Simulated scan of single mutants.
Amino acid sequence: MTGPRLVSILRQGSYLIASIHTALDDTEMTAFQHDLVERIGRDRARGVVIDVAALDVLDSFASWTLRTIGEVARLRGAVTVVVGIQPEVAFAMVALGMDTGSVRTALDLEEGLAFLDRVVGPRRPATATRGGPA
């Protein structure tokens, strides 16, 4: 029997939405990184939203891993935005001198998707059809 899922990665058109449901240890965070980067190529994602709203702590390794995911995604042709950083987590990150580097942030999933729509263009349907208008 398996326990609850720690993360989920869902495809929405040309975007991937990755939600972290609970705090991850370093090994789990590294596995999440590898899974997400693999999915970017497999799904030909143009944008990635990483939702961390469920986290009440974001340690230096997790922060570094999010930056790394963003940079690797960029090299693979996808824009990354981190959403849902809780106020207490943001205060702690600033106090400790941690940040997300060049990876953009947004308040929530809705704003993250709107940001990607502005930067990479509207989401395309999950299943593209061939031919002209009906």
Rank of each mutant, 00 (worst) to 15 (best):
F91N: 15
T65N: 15
R44D: 08
A62E: 09
T27M: 15
T30G: 12
V82F: 13
G121Q: 06
T105Y: 03
E88W: 12
Q12S: 09
R46V: 04
V48A: 04
R104M: 06
L116P: 04
L16V: 08
L58H: 10
F115K: 04
D35P: 00
A23V: 13
T68S: 12
R11T: 06
P133R: 14
E110R: 07
V82K: 11
Q12H: 09
R123C: 02
T80A: 11
A90T: 06
V52C: 12
R67S: 12
R124T: 10
V37M: 02
R104A: 12
P133C: 13
T30L: 09
L36A: 03
A62N: 07
A73T: 12
I17P: 07
L116K: 05
P87G: 07
G47D: 03
R67N: 08
G41T: 10
R46C: 01
A53Y: 05
R104E: 13
T65Y: 04
V89C: 13
I9V: 02
G77H: 13
V37E: 01
I69D: 06
I85Q: 13
G112S: 03
R46Q: 11
D25F: 09
D59M: 12
L66H: 06
R46E: 09
V120F: 08
V94N: 11
A73Q: 07
L10Q: 04
F32K: 05
S63Q: 05
V48S: 08
E71P: 04
D108V: 10
A53G: 06
A114Y: 01
M93K: 06
A128I: 15
S63W: 04
P87I: 11
I85E: 12
R5W: 00
S63F: 07
M93V: 05
G47F: 09
D108N: 13
V83I: 07
M93E: 06
L55A: 09
T2R: 09
D59A: 03
T30W: 09
A134Q: 14
A128R: 15
P4I: 07
M29D: 05
L66T: 03
T127N: 08
D43Y: 04
L58W: 06
L58E: 13
M98D: 02
A92G: 10
T22R: 05
V49R: 11
L109K: 01
A73M: 04
G112L: 05
G131D: 07
Q33P: 00
T80E: 12
H34Y: 04
T127S: 14
A18K: 02
A31H: 01
D117L: 00
L36D: 00
P125V: 15
L113R: 04
T27K: 15
F61K: 10
I40L: 09
W64S: 10
L6Q: 01
L58M: 14
P125D: 15
G101Y: 06
L113N: 00
W64V: 11
D59P: 13
E111Q: 03
R76C: 15
R118L: 15
A126I: 10
R124P: 07
P122Q: 14
L109T: 00
A31Y: 06
G84T: 10
F61R: 11
A73Y: 07
V89L: 08
E38C: 00
R124E: 15
V89A: 11
R104W: 02
D117A: 06
G13Q: 03
R118Q: 11
A95W: 08
D25K: 02
A134N: 13
L66P: 02
E71Q: 08
V79I: 12
M1T: 11
D99P: 05
T2G: 01
T68F: 02
I50P: 13
